[in-house]
């Protein structure tokens, strides 16, 4: 594991982010065995992730979005108002053998959030997927374009108000009835 130890020398790209040392204490969190879930606000999001990276969570294993439009009710801490979209980030620490989950609320009328590309370059494709399927724009992402759907596609298919099965398909012309 010696190669992990020296990765501190080389990852200067995001040291510019002045992350508040105490940010993790300000963020509301819940212990949901076997995992800890953090609920930062959109403003705290980038600092929280940067601080977690410093605390040894070296790998961003997954980033996805959930659209809570039709969900009957769900849990958020008291000071966090639930919004339509929720960005869910799963981090992994190889040294501590631990996972942590970060959930950020993103409102429907302003679906934007900071990209964490500078901290975890591995989210490039995942953030593009989230943009493609949910229409959430990640600010400062180097290439915020569609990844799975065709480039001229309209709408964001995994949103709950996007209906399935109404794309007209041109089959070979059917024989006329008269």
């Amino acid at each position: 594991m010696s190669s992990i130890e020296n990765d501190k020398d080389n990852n200067s790209s995001f040291d510019k982010i002045d992350s508040d040392e105490n940010i993790l204490e300000q963020v509301s969190s819940i212990q949901k065995p076997p995992i800890e879930v953090l609920f930062p606000t959109r403003e705290q999001y980038l600092d929280t992730i940067a601080q977690l990276h410093k605390n040894g969570y070296e790998m961003c294993i997954d980033l996805c979005v959930v659209d809570y439009l039709t969900h009957p009710g769900r849990f958020t801490p008291q000071n966090i108002a639930p919004q339509r979209f929720e960005v869910v980030v799963n981090l992994l620490s190889l040294k501590m053998h631990k996972r942590i989950r970060i959930k950020v609320q993103v409102p429907q009328d302003d679906p934007t959030i900071e990209s964490i590309f500078t901290i975890y370059p591995g989210v490039e494709a995942m953030e593009r997927e989230a943009y493609d399927l949910f229409g959430i724009t990640f600010l400062n992402h180097p290439d915020m374009t569609r990844i799975l759907m065709p480039e001229d596609w309209e709408g964001h298919p995994l949103r709950k108000d996007y209906q399935v099965g109404n794309i007209p398909v041109n089959f070979k012309e059917a024989p006329k009835t008269r």
């Binding site: 992990i4 990765d7 989210v123």
Partner: peptide
């Protein structure tokens, strides 16, 4: 390298081939 692989979220045999067990 191992640090590149970890930064990019690479797992499985590719990560292990860089020496990360």
């Amino acid at each position: 390298s191992a640090q590149e692989a970890i930064a990019l979220g690479v797992t499985g045999p590719i990560l292990r081939s860089t020496g990360v067990a």
